[in-house]
Design a protein around this nucleic acid. Structure first.
Lengths: 341, 341
DNA sequence: CTGTTAGCGCCTTCAT
DNA sequence: ATGAAGGCGCTAACAG
């Protein structure tokens, strides 16, 4: 069976079934214009020969690969892992596969990855992570396939995206601390140059202070890199500079947990002595003691909705909204004194 | 520039540069047999035209796609996320991309994913997770491309794999608890039907007991699903059935952390009252208090080495060892009384 | 060093 | 309902 060397092709099936390649192609692709009898015959031969369609050839001929490129900062970061799961589930649902690439937030790498993905003729691109710069916009605008941003936004609103309102999320978190009656509210964030969460969350913090007539004090602000250890260090510094703080809003859960532990190591009790709010609600937040109060960001959904939006673009369906803002939630647990609204 | 409709192709570049397609192909592929002058000319035209090679066409012609398929149980599980990072890094290093698929450990899904991946003509397959059954072996043996297992092994040694010795890892963990002088050593594992970690780690636990003349007591054994909550429940049950246990070996870190918290909630002190050993050393282990003592499994390396091995197969290099057992380490932190050897 | 010529395996009009 | 034929964009001998 099959031809001499190599794989068995649509041609082999056609010959064996006594029909043309076109007919085989039709049954493989579910085209209804095939007489049931011949369809059955072809299907039998396919079965018997163990024919496996070559998606690369199909891609070349049809100009569709049913695969999308996903550029992500770091899959080992639980934040992105959860997002990716949402993406992959919906991709599978719509019969797409994803090529996953880690960018480490390096712009050069991001650009290079996009280029590679386009060479591979992906049908669409999902971009998560870093800030969108002019360079990105230039590339994306020249891209032959649709692009959707997830968990980040385009400040110029030129690109479709799905995310949450970071400013409001940070405001909500800060407000909880204000409601608790803390006299001072410290902030541990990520670099303000990070326009995705760094700057917006800082803005939200500031806004909340402002609206509630709290004075801003730069000694109450520390910047980390988002990960556990930097949260630990940041908290240590905060405690050195200011013995009396009773609350901190930390821009990422990992840092927040680090902050809790730094406070604990200093002999402080959380939340009795110091109240700590995180942000994102990654699994870790519910796996530590005290349980972390945090802003619940719908990571899985952001990924899922972004992928769904991308399928609409790829499918040239009508798009009502190309910029989606998902809701976040307050998840008040045991690291704040207020535990419910 | 370019042809009327659609993309600019190698043909356009050839025409514009006044050379043949073959020559353009040569410079694009870094073939040295091109006069520097013409190479430059071609490169210029490529630049000027913004030519982007079509990897799908190349794949069809060359029968190589430089992409590999990765079948993984669940990317949102930190254990696999870390492994995947190792895979992707090495893949990138060797100029491969990865198509990532979540199987949720469902055999039907696994098989279907493999089929899809093969249709897409991946150059190789990396399979992680579930136990290898006869069905798997049948599929893999009929696969036209190399397959490497990661973090799992083929009991029949027919397939290449890279993992650690799960039995020895569990033995080492249990031994620590024995060295501490605990009279009883409890075990919280995953189902024994899981032949990847469930059964082997249970075996290791048993072996260690046996070699040290500890009596086996089924009341000291609980089975969970590997995740935090089930560890918490398991520990609660253990404590109900047996008030006096002073040590537990828990087969996964997430469950171990759950176990710690269950003990804490029961008013016990860890490790003073009860000593807890985890296994895997995922980031979580170093982000809780007390810091979790655990077996450090080189997750990233398993992924990296597996991918490297796969490149060797795809490249038809000589393979010295197709079955690689990586070393694990003892990571003694604060949840055990013994904190160093 | 460079050009010519076949395909790679499939889809897709266009006829029939 | 089915077949014939021309690409899709590129690589890979084979000549020269």
């Amino acid at each position: 069976m099959g031809n001499k060397k190599g794989n068995i092709t649509i041609y082999d099936v056609a010959r064996e079934a006594g029909v043309s390649m076109a007919t085989v192609s039709r049954v493989v692709n579910g085209n209804p214009n095939v007489k049931p009898a011949t369809r059955k015959k072809v299907l039998d031969v396919i079965q018997q020969l163990g024919y496996r369609p070559n998606a690369v050839a199909r891609g070349l001929a049809s100009k569709k690969t049913t695969t999308v490129g996903v550029v992500i900062p770091d899959i080992s970061n639980p934040f992105y892992a959860e997002l990716t799961r949402g993406i992959e589930d919906i991709a599978t649902m719509y019969h797409y596969n994803i090529i996953l690439c880690n960018s480490d937030l390096k712009q050069m790498k991001e650009i290079q990855l996009i280029e590679t993905l386009l060479e591979k003729q992906v049908d669409g691109l999902l971009f998560l992570g870093g800030a969108i710069t002019e360079d990105h916009r230039a590339i994306f605008s020249a891209t032959p396939v649709p692009v959707v941003l997830a968990a980040t936004k385009d400040d110029k609103n030129e690109l479709p995206y799905v995310t949450i309102n970071q400013i409001e999320a940070a405001k909500a978190a800060t407000s909880i601390l204000i409601e608790e009656g803390n006299k001072q509210i410290a902030y541990i964030g990520v670099p303000l140059t990070d326009s995705v969460t760094g700057y917006p969350r800082y803005q939200g913090y500031m806004k909340s202070l402002d609206e509630n007539r709290y004075a801003f004090d730069e000694n109450l602000v520390e910047i980390g890199n988002g990960r556990y250890l930097s949260g630990y260090e940041a908290m240590k510094n905060l405690l050195i500079k200011n013995k009396n703080i009773t609350s901190v809003f930390v821009a990422t859960d990992e840092m927040a947990v680090g902050a809790i532990h730094a406070a604990l190591d200093q002999g402080l009790s959380v939340p009795k002595d110091i109240s700590i709010m995180g942000c994102n609600n990654i699994p870790l937040a519910a796996q530590v003691r005290p349980l972390l109060s945090t802003i619940s960001v719908p990571l899985y959904d952001i990924g899922a909705v972004a992928m769904r939006l991308l399928t609409k673009y790829m499918n040239e369906e009508d798009i009502e909204t190309s910029q989606v803002i998902l809701q976040f939630d307050l998840e008040l647990r045991d690291s704040t004194r207020i535990r419910e609204l």
